[in-house]
Write a protein that binds this DNA or RNA. Structure first.
Lengths: 139, 139
DNA sequence: TCATAAAAATGTAATCATTACAAATTAATA
DNA sequence: TATTAATTTGTAATGATTACATTTTTATGA
């Protein structure tokens, strides 16, 4: 997604594409690292010296509200964000802390216990040891 | 689970069954309402006037650490706790706020994208409208 | 039983992520 | 260009959680 596409995408989601919003969304798209608001602020403030942290929070909340990004609560003490709105799961390595995406066959999740429940969001979080950290521990 | 069983269960998990710990665990077992630390404190303080909120936090952290309870991060601003350690999912109704349990066939989740990853925890969170709230909206 | 050490619980203060809010800046419109 | 609306800013407030030193309770051994 280049900056033109991002602009179109935000407009499509009823979000006026201001400069800051474009930059923050671009950060999410280019860095699929599930960042916190604070990390986004720290990464962008050099390039946009007038940026305030409140704007980052406001903007991320707007993205989530309009369905342009999703909030990831895999950590208990901080919120992370992801511009990838396709159905997928997240894996957090307990050793290195990295959050990985993985494909997900959502239809396979049997919701027999929830008849007539209307699902609007799904958040699939796994935790454990990633491949790299397992290898490291073996040596 | 009566208090005897709870005592045995805590011991089995390397947790010394003090009075407060027993009461807090009993609350989790008897009220499957996925409470916050604050709610547990408010519900128990009348019966145990010397209880402190710090003790509730300490105790819940101990339960999670020892594998006697799990931390639920379906809310972005507060931690909830569940003594049910069997594999199951959680559904939060966006209208009434209630958190439901539902059975889960975890094996159905295809983790093709994560070869050699060692999964130690799974947290499956759905959000939407529960049955009751849908009916309410229709009328 | 009493003394002593270890563990648990308490209460207050600190921390840290997030939000509230009012003021300032920027953009849109006529 | 004037005026209004939207966006952004900065600071202060909030609220959940933790740190930490003190007190209380429990366990152990003489």
């Amino acid at each position: 997604m280049d900056i033109r596409e991002i602009e179109r995408f935000l407009k499509f989601n009823q979000i006026k594409p201001s400069h800051h919003r474009l930059k923050i969304y671009e950060y999410l798209v280019k860095n699929k690292n599930h960042p916190t608001a604070d990390l986004i602020y720290r990464e962008l403030v050099d390039e946009i010296p007038t940026l305030s942290k409140t704007t980052v929070y406001n903007t991320l909340n707007l993205f989530v509200e309009k369905g342009a990004a999703q909030l990831i609560t895999i950590d208990e003490s901080e919120n992370r964000y992801d511009a990838d709105m396709s159905i997928h799961g997240h894996f957090k390595c307990k050793h290195c802390g990295k959050v990985y995406d993985f494909p997900l066959n959502f239809a396979a999740i049997d919701m027999g216990g929830l008849q007539n429940f209307q699902v609007e969001e799904n958040h699939i979080y796994l935790k454990g040891l990633c491949n790299d950290c397992q290898i490291q521990k073996e040596n």
